[in-house]
């Protein structure tokens, strides 16, 4: 290093320091006992930490739904606006199977498998015919979502269902996080539903699994190559249609699985399809189309924003999500992890 060079940080170092500081502040917020002035600003520590935890679990769920959406788009340039319907159908199927057999895990498996099969059928029968015409593919997916929503309404009517989780997933765990110190000096630790932590864990596990599959396996290599240049992949002797069907199965299956998992934590009702479609859209717009890590980052941002918004400015919560999307588009139109197109 020459002496004339000024001792400045590189951009990367600067961002790392910002990230470290943010992480330190967050860790302090979560683990420290809050002084009164902070309670005054942020209502209470319990509300704040619960919102963060709810945001994280919600982010896990959003990631499961959006990762399929982003994979399908990245590879096939197919904006599948029926993705929310896949989520809702998965939830209904999971409910039926879990309700009839009594095994919740069987419901989860059914949600994944049935939707994966439906995904293959959709890709082979419908979307392959319209390959290269992304507008028509999108229009067709809209048509499918309308028909699907109406038929689901016919079968399951307008009521709200709750998928019952098994006993071993019930109950709450006490976290090593102090929520308050009572006047008599005893500390109160924060309790949190065990099932929601499981959802978060499952999402992280699937995320890591997807990342490994995409980056360390031959199929994953083909998919990544296809995202970059479909025609070249096809020219080098790979059967791209098989890859397309596989990715569609994966994406639809994940949406179905998310439906069962989410339907157990929240509830299953008509209209949920639109909610999760919106979430998937915003998550991938913010995170960047076609990127798994982008979906994870986007899900994290949107999940946290939604829950914090719900606690701190209830009637304007959705605006926060919206602002995040607009700001992302203004600064980085391709999304946080999106590549240059």
């Amino acid at each position: 290093m020459s002496l004339s060079e000024p001792a400045t940080f590189t951009r990367r170092q600067g961002w790392s320091i910002v990230a470290l500081l943010a992480a330190a502040v967050l860790a302090w917020l979560v683990f420290a006992v809050w002084p009164d002035w902070l309670d005054d600003i942020l209502i209470s520590k319990k509300a704040f930490v619960s919102a963060i935890l709810n945001g994280l679990t919600l982010a896990g769920l959003y990631f499961l739904v959006a990762s399929g959406f982003t994979l399908i788009f990245g590879l096939m340039r197919n904006v599948n606006l029926a993705h929310g319907s896949l989520y809702l159908l998965g939830a209904y199927i999971g409910y039926e199977v879990a309700d009839r057999t009594g095994y919740w895990l069987l419901g989860v498996a059914a949600g994944f498998v049935v939707l994966a099969v439906i995904g293959i059928v959709l890709q082979v029968v419908v979307f392959r015919r319209l390959e290269g015409d992304d507008l028509r593919q999108t229009l067709v997916s809209i048509g499918i979502s309308i028909v699907a929503a109406d038929l689901m309404l016919a079968v399951w009517s307008g009521g709200t269902y709750q998928i019952t989780t098994p006993l071993w997933l019930d109950g709450a765990v006490t976290l090593p996080i102090i929520s308050t110190i009572k006047s008599d000096g005893s500390t109160v630790f924060l309790k949190y539903p065990f099932y929601r932590l499981v959802v978060l864990f499952v999402a992280v596990a699937i995320g890591i699994g997807l990342w490994l599959a995409m980056n360390k396996t031959r199929i994953g290599m083909m998919i990544r190559a296809g995202v970059d240049d479909r025609a070249m992949l096809s020219a080098s002797g790979v059967n791209v249609h098989r890859i397309f069907a596989l990715v569609f199965a994966m994406g639809a299956g994940l949406a179905g699985l998310a439906g069962v998992v989410g339907g157990s934590a929240l509830s299953v009702a008509p209209g949920e399809d639109v909610r999760y479609l919106l979430t998937s859209l915003v998550v991938v717009i913010v995170g960047g189309m076609g990127s798994i890590s982008g979906a994870a980052i986007g899900a994290l941002i949107i999940g946290l924003a939604e829950q914090l918004g719900l606690v701190y400015f209830p009637t304007y919560g959705i605006v926060l999500t919206f602002v995040i999307m607009v700001v992302t588009l203004a600064i980085r139109p391709q999304g946080i992890m999106g590549g240059r197109r």
Partner: peptide, 27 residues
């Protein structure tokens, strides 16, 4: 800011967000 098929996604997101906003906002 983006083009092609993205427009449909962004406008759908805007439409849906506006719908939820009008539903949540009482004032």
């Amino acid at each position: 800011r983006t083009d092609g098929i993205y427009t449909i996604m962004i406008t759908l997101a805007i439409a849906t967000a506006t719908y939820y906003f009008t539903q949540q906002n009482a004032e």
